[in-house]
Computed example of a mutant assay.
Amino acid sequence: MKNIKWIFVFYSLAAVASMCLIGFAVGMHSIPFGVIAVVALVLIMGNGFKTKKKMRELGTL
């Protein structure tokens, strides 16, 4: 429990929520809402990978 990187838990939960929103948008037949959900997913996952790279370079991972 002491080695948990909570920022990555947040990023993963936010990415899962975005994926759920994509499914919700498909169910509603809402293209704008789907596009927003996909953009949110890309931004969240991109930030997660960027944070991981930064932490790896600093040696804190």
Rank of each mutant, 00 (worst) to 15 (best):
M55R: 03
H29Q: 11
K50Q: 11
I4M: 13
F49L: 13
F24D: 10
I36T: 15
A37V: 06
T51N: 08
K52Q: 09
V42T: 12
A37T: 09
E57M: 07
K52N: 08
L43R: 07
M55W: 03
F49A: 09
L41R: 06
A25D: 04
V9L: 11
V39P: 01
F33H: 05
G48E: 02
G59S: 01
F10I: 13
L21S: 15
F24I: 14
N47I: 00
F8P: 03
F8C: 01
V26W: 02
A17T: 14
N47Q: 11
S18P: 00
G34K: 05
M55S: 07
G34C: 10
N47M: 10
L61G: 06
G48P: 00
A37D: 03
A37H: 05
V38D: 06
I22T: 11
L43W: 07
A25F: 04
R56I: 03
G59C: 02
K2F: 09
V39T: 14
V26S: 06
T60L: 11
N47H: 09
A25N: 00
N3W: 12
L43P: 02
K54S: 09
M45F: 08
E57R: 08
A14S: 15
M1W: 09
C20Q: 13
I7R: 12
M55H: 04
L21F: 15
H29A: 14
M55V: 00
V9S: 04
V39F: 12
I31G: 00
A37Q: 05
K5A: 14
L13R: 10
K54I: 06
V38F: 15
P32H: 03
I36F: 13
I22S: 08
G34S: 10
K2R: 11
L61D: 06
M45R: 08
I4G: 10
L43F: 10
L21N: 15
S12R: 14
G27E: 03
N47V: 02
A25R: 01
G27W: 02
F49G: 10
F8L: 08
V26Y: 08
S30L: 03
G27S: 05
Y11R: 06
I4C: 13
A14M: 14
L41Q: 09
C20V: 13
M1E: 05
Y11D: 13
V26G: 04
G27N: 06
V35H: 07
V16M: 12
G34W: 04
A40P: 10
L61A: 05
V9C: 07
K2Y: 07
A14T: 13
I44K: 00
L21H: 14
H29K: 07
V9D: 02
G23I: 12
I4D: 14
I44Y: 01
R56V: 06
I36N: 10
V42G: 11
M55F: 08
T51S: 10
V26R: 02
F10G: 12
M45G: 08
K52V: 01
R56C: 02
F8V: 03
T51Y: 02
K54P: 04
C20D: 07
G46V: 07
G27V: 00
A17N: 14
A25G: 09
F33E: 04
S12Q: 14
N47L: 09
F49Q: 03
F49R: 05
M28I: 06
L58W: 06
A15K: 01
N47A: 09
H29E: 05
M55C: 05
K50C: 06
I7K: 12
G46W: 00
S18K: 08
G27H: 04
S30W: 03
K52L: 06
K53G: 09
